[in-house]
Design a protein around this nucleic acid. Structure first.
Lengths: 112, 112
DNA sequence: TCCTATATATAGAGTGTCGATATATAGACC
DNA sequence: GGTCTATATATCGACACTCTATATATAGGA
């Protein structure tokens, strides 16, 4: 008997995982993350601004990322790095997402 | 460039797909569907009553399932069957869900 | 009599994304 | 100069959805 999945949490965690995964390499600012995720998923996952920034604040609050203000070309940016805590969380969450899909796939399997 | 995913719709579609998939075999009433899905996913996917019945009504409204009232052991039940429309929808949706998770998995890949 | 299981229903709470709007700089174009 | 697009962040309110709690009703076991 596995833990029941909270679907609202699943959506939240998918978005968080996408952002954290984008930060595995170098630190990036929010706008860059959105552009990268959209490119890497071929447009399948996109971030509305009203979605992206609250999530970044939530992640920073939970110390899964840490941000520093920068100035580039006269524009201010907040550049985020993945913390150790965030990296651990990403590993656990990736496993969870995969398990969820495995189960879902088994049940829907044979279709399509 | 694929279509951007609406995550709220994804949750809705996962729940709907789980219900429709449970009806691929024989017709079932709501309570039975919930029990079966929970058993077949080893407790990973469960339906709260407040979630289940509104979804059944939504599916019936959209003619993806059709329900008939029955009496068994003095209890009234509404037994639902999968319609052709529902079967088609399930096929399409299963493909969509699988594609979504495939993309997600590719991005999170290497973790876990 | 009380509790649990079966069976459906709905109103309201909670939580999340989404859309719109605001601010600000910079470059391209006319 | 003025407009548009791109970059860059922020927040409020609308919307959609699940989740909790409550209601109703029958049946069986302790």
């Amino acid at each position: 008997m596995t833990e029941p999945i909270d679907l609202q949490a699943l959506v939240r965690e998918i978005n968080e995982a996408l952002i954290l995964a984008a930060l595995r390499g170098e630190p990036k600012h929010g706008y860059q993350i959105a552009v990268d995720v959209e490119r890497e998923t071929d447009g399948m996952f996109t971030f509305q601004h009203g979605t992206l920034y609250p999530i970044l604040h939530r992640l920073e609050k939970g110390r899964r990322i840490s941000g520093k203000w920068e100035k580039a070309d006269g524009r201010r940016r907040k550049v985020y790095s993945l913390t150790d805590r965030g990296r651990e969380w990403l590993t656990i969450q990736s496993r969870r997402v995969r398990a969820t899909f495995g189960t879902l796939d088994a049940l829907l399997g044979g279709e399509g």
